[in-house]
Design a protein around this nucleic acid. Structure first.
Lengths: 206, 206
DNA sequence: CGATGCATACCGACTGGTCGGTCTGGCGTC
DNA sequence: GACGCCAGACCGACCAGTCGGTATGCATCG
């Protein structure tokens, strides 16, 4: 176990875990080292500073979540709206276990560092909005397919879905209970269904 | 100026301002003192510790926001659904100015302290869910008046609205731009309109 | 009325612990 | 034998909290 040469990855994984639970500022370098089973020497061998690690951790997060969502089953349905709804279902289904396990690293960090660490904030933003952007093609396809020409854009709905999720995580942290988060995701799903189902939104209505 | 005897209030006001911008952990006691134009001695005369101040600041926040929303104009409309939609409009209209000015103190703090300070977390939760609860009567009245019997509860929609707002604030912090936040509030409003307008949700549909 | 005493409000130098970051030395591997 | 990788003692800045002190009411009594 704990082979040499993988300390860097283990530090990054540890950082994700610890920062997601404690937050960024409250996380000490030694907490991450302890979680990774590594010493400070190793930490500062791989990273110039704590902030440097944070940047790397966000990059690592983007890479991990990118793969995770790319391979998730929600892309299967043939219908684009079904894919979108399957995405929402999938997001709901992974709200499971410990808070740190389903919560978003970059959303958590953004709150703490948006004023003080512009570079880090931009990296967090790239993660959130990059992920949101992956939803746009399906939203746009669904709009075309259903003949809808609304006063909102695919991009704004994609961003809104991320807002709902981020907000749901906050409520979950406030209560210590996943239920309230799932509930909000249900509302998001209902919203999307209504957006595409409502006769008032259809081009072809009388 | 800066009469004696109001240091405590000035410290609380300063705490709201500084914590909303920097976050809780990154805020030093001396930052709050400087903002309040008061010294450390005064701080620790009024508060046992930084955590003690945090608790008092949340209580102060609950009191301030309680009065602010109670006196806001959105209660004017006679129709309960109109009141609810006016609330959403109002929330959108106050997303203005500096990020710290429209952002939520307790949402920010929750993220940082939910694991480490249970008492503080409960106080934050009380603020969020207490505010959400003020929306329930109007939601319920609107449901009755429009003859809607949906599969969601007034409480859950009230909580969802808070989730959207909290999430919108995160996106605003990530981009440094209010626009994304307002956009999400627009989606929330559209959702509520659809919920009450959709024939699929009506009791009296064929 | 002034003096005396006491409580509350406030000040700011200081302390003691904490934590990011450094440095020296060692171990394995090519 | 040099170089990447790591260990952990150590340093120094920083900061929550302390402590001895001063200032300002506000009673009560002679």
């Amino acid at each position: 176990m704990a082979a040499r040469h993988d300390s860097k990855t283990r530090l990054l994984d540890a950082a994700l875990k610890v920062v997601r639970t404690r937050g960024y500022n409250a996380t000490r370098v030694e907490d991450i080292c302890a979680e990774a089973g590594v010493t400070k020497g190793s930490f500062f061998h791989h990273f110039k500073s704590k902030d440097d690690l944070a940047l790397a951790a966000v990059a690592h997060w983007i890479e991990m979540t990118g793969g995770f969502f790319a391979e998730a089953p929600y892309h299967a349905p043939a219908d684009p709206l079904d894919r979108l709804l399957a995405y929402v279902d999938f997001r709901k289904s992974i709200i499971e276990g410990d808070i740190a396990e389903f919560t978003c690293l970059v959303g958590t960090m953004t709150q703490e560092i948006h004023e003080s660490h512009p570079a880090l904030r931009d990296a967090c933003a790239a993660s959130i909005f990059g992920h949101a952007a992956t939803l746009e093609p399906d939203i746009e396809a669904a709009m075309r397919q259903r003949g809808i020409a609304p006063d909102w854009t695919p991009a704004s709905l994609a961003r809104h879905s991320q807002a709902v999720l981020q907000g749901a995580f906050i409520l979950a942290k406030a209560t210590g209970d996943r239920t309230v988060a799932r509930e909000s995701v249900d509302h998001l799903k209902r919203y999307i269904e209504l957006l595409f189902a409502s006769p008032f939104a259809r081009k072809d209505r009388p």
